[in-house]
């Protein structure tokens, strides 16, 4: 599904974001990326859909090289990749429905989108997506009238309506409380298990990572220092990724 080939990234100011990454993620996996703040988690995730350009190496998504794609080809590849952000990144003034529908814009001609002409099928898809995250009744509310957890579920619905084969989530629960964290992560897990959509999720909390991941990738200063099934990710392993024993605030208490 995703393959990193010798990927490196140096920011214009000289900071090393990623260092020679070689990782292969298979279809249907639930990968959680962990690491200290500044380890390069966001950089890794954002290079998968090329919100960030890499400086070296190649990334293959769904059999096609996204790092080499241009114009329409790039849009085509991105269309298959959903993304969920820490701060939801919804259009707050627009309705929930329109936000979810915005996942569909990659499928249609530009002029149709300028006029806002979505086929009926898209609206059905959007409704289905909202039902999956248990929010059909909020469809015509404005996005900024929802709570944080609800907004995040709308953004999950957006990725679902997009019919993405792969969903990237950059700290999807970092601004949510434990209860909503559980709801949102459960949603992601169901989507992963029932629809077979591959998940790559950056997480800050170890216990959440352990509970939901099938595989864990540990980053440290832009390098992969751990990569393996969740069973192998022991406390000692985490201590090594973090370069120190675990601290209170890295455990949220959702899993217990």
């Amino acid at each position: 599904m995703i393959e990193f080939k010798n990927v490196s990234k140096v920011y214009p100011n000289g900071t090393r974001g990623l260092k020679n990454i070689n990782v292969k993620i298979e279809k249907g996996e639930f990968v959680v990326v962990v690491g200290l703040s500044g380890a390069g988690k966001s950089t890794l995730l954002r290079s998968i859909n090329r919100l960030h350009e890499v400086s070296d190496g190649e990334i293959i998504v769904g059999g096609k090289s996204i790092t080499k794609a241009q114009g329409t080809d790039l849009y085509r590849i991105r269309r298959d990749i959903g993304m969920i952000f820490q701060h939801f990144n919804l259009v707050k003034r627009s309705s929930v429905m329109r936000n979810v529908l915005s996942g569909r814009v990659g499928y249609h001609a530009t002029w149709k989108m300028v006029l806002g002409l979505f086929p009926k099928k898209d609206k059905e898809l959007a409704i289905q997506a909202l039902k999956r995250v248990n929010m059909p009744e909020k469809a015509y509310m404005r996005a900024d009238q929802l709570s944080g957890g609800q907004q995040q579920r709308v953004s999950i619905a957006r990725a679902l309506a997009q019919e993405a084969k792969l969903i990237l989530a950059d700290e999807p629960v970092a601004s949510l409380d434990p209860l909503t964290t559980k709801q949102v992560m459960d949603d992601l897990q169901h989507i992963n298990q029932e629809l077979g959509i591959t998940m790559v999720v950056n997480l800050h909390f170890i216990d959440v990572a352990r509970k939901y991941a099938t595989r864990i990738i540990g980053l440290k200063q832009g390098e992969v220092v751990f990569d393996g099934p969740v069973e192998n990710a022991t406390d000692e392993m985490f201590a090594e990724i973090y370069g120190r024993p675990l601290e209170e605030d890295e455990i949220m208490g959702v899993a217990r």
């Binding site: 429905m97 009926k120 409704i127 039902k131 059909p136 009744e137 469809a139 015509y140």
Partner: peptide, 16 residues
């Protein structure tokens, strides 16, 4: 049928 479906699934009617 679409209308019926809307009614049965608890979808609010889209605003006019």
């Amino acid at each position: 049928t679409a209308e019926l479906k809307n009614q049965t699934t608890g979808m609010p009617a889209p605003p006019k």
